[in-house]
Design a protein around this nucleic acid. Structure first.
Lengths: 223, 223
DNA sequence: GCCATCGCCTTTACAAAGTAAGTTTAAGAT
DNA sequence: ATCTTAAACTTACTTTGTAAAGGCGATGGC
């Protein structure tokens, strides 16, 4: 096993790639570095992702956004069969009320994006047409139908929900990002900003608050 | 003028860079190509952006997100003094009702992001701490204060609004993005999706609907 | 008028990145 | 034993960002 057959697999590659992205940023993910982390020559990766780095990117996005799979800090407790884990979260026949289902999805999806915020730029231009993405969307449609929305409203509501969650993550990531080259000062021209100050915003609470407001607004407007 | 002094400027560079991004995608923007478009050697750009490509990226983001400046399809009608244009949009003392001001901002901001959607990945990790960004935020705070929200609610509401607008753009861009490697089919496991079909969603209308719902929800929850 | 200086652009050069092409090795199948 | 094939290695080429230094024209002081 010293030379070839180093036990590489798509899963291991994706996991290691995410570690690199989390630690050194998206631009820190290079094929050679990824190879080093996997104790393998860079070109070996192309055997598992023949279409190149873009295919790897796509797989990373799918890995992050697939709320069906368990989160990745979850090395199964050694020896367990890995492929058929316990029935995932709210999947089989989730009979909780629709609001709770949507809230639950929103929180998990947000957590996943935040956990790997370095990979967010990859998500922007990728079509969510994987099986898991469609399954999520279907679940949202079902929830909003149960809420009493009609055909047209369902699609709008689901779009608004997805927009809010993704946007909230980006809002937070931007706010926590590194300062620009010329950060403007809070002079007298920004009375409200200066007044409120910045007592370390509680983004978790903000997110939930905004989510409730959105759901309430959607029901009120479309219900 | 053949050799040096080719009439380069930060503004021209940014404009041309955006054209390239719009036409060939973010990865299509290379220093050499940008130089070619500007009829200049690539290294000349570094005279105006000494910190390199990242500084150019920051300038592009600022250019796109600064709702103070006019949009860029706006070559002034030849000969006009360019630096002090007509007082911009809702700036001086906008006395319209707060909802209208926020709606107006949301529509313009969204239009700007959509116009240069290729640059969206650049926005994700940049802190909105420029003068124009703070001015926008200040305006939103003032609007929500006028709406009767208290201190804490104002910040939450402004964050939710920004999240929704950014997220809605990304939602649309993702949906219109190129298909993934293995687009899942809409089989019987997605009854709602199959039923509704895809009659070319009217994202403009969806956006406004969701925006109204969010504003209503915010007022209802925080007012 | 002359020369120094400075702003703006070019030239040259290099290291790092993605990846195409071909080769090697180990393990099964016939 | 020989053939096949999957998996990883080796080599090499192209493109990219950018460091370093040089050239050229305008400008201001004498």
């Amino acid at each position: 096993m010293s030379r070839n057959n180093a036990g590489l697999s798509a899963g291991r590659i994706i996991t290691e790639a995410l570690k690199i992205i989390d630690g050194r940023g998206l631009s820190g993910l290079t094929m050679r570095r990824l190879g080093d982390a996997l104790q393998v020559e860079a070109m070996a990766i192309y055997h598992h992702f023949p279409l190149g780095k873009d295919q790897l990117y796509a797989a990373i996005v799918e890995h992050i956004t697939d709320t069906t799979r368990p989160v990745d800090g979850d090395a199964p407790a050694a020896g367990a069969a890995e492929e058929e884990a316990a029935p995932r979260d709210e999947e089989p026949g989730d009979d909780r009320p629709w609001q709770e289902r949507l809230r639950s999805w929103a929180e998990e999806y947000r957590a996943r994006l935040l956990r790997h915020s370095g990979a967010l730029p990859l998500i922007v231009h990728r079509k969510p047409d994987s099986a898991s993405a469609l399954r999520s969307l279907e679940a949202h449609y079902a929830a909003f139908e149960e809420a009493g929305l009609d055909r047209d409203a369902i699609a709008r509501a689901a779009a608004a929900l997805d927009a809010y969650v993704t946007g909230a993550v980006i809002h937070q990531v931007r706010a926590e990002g590194r300062p620009g080259p010329a950060p403007a000062s809070l002079d007298a021209r920004h009375p409200h900003l200066a007044e409120l100050g910045d007592p370390a915003p509680d983004y978790d609470a903000w997110f939930l608050d905004g989510l409730e407001a959105l759901l309430a607004g959607l029901r009120l407007r479309f219900g």
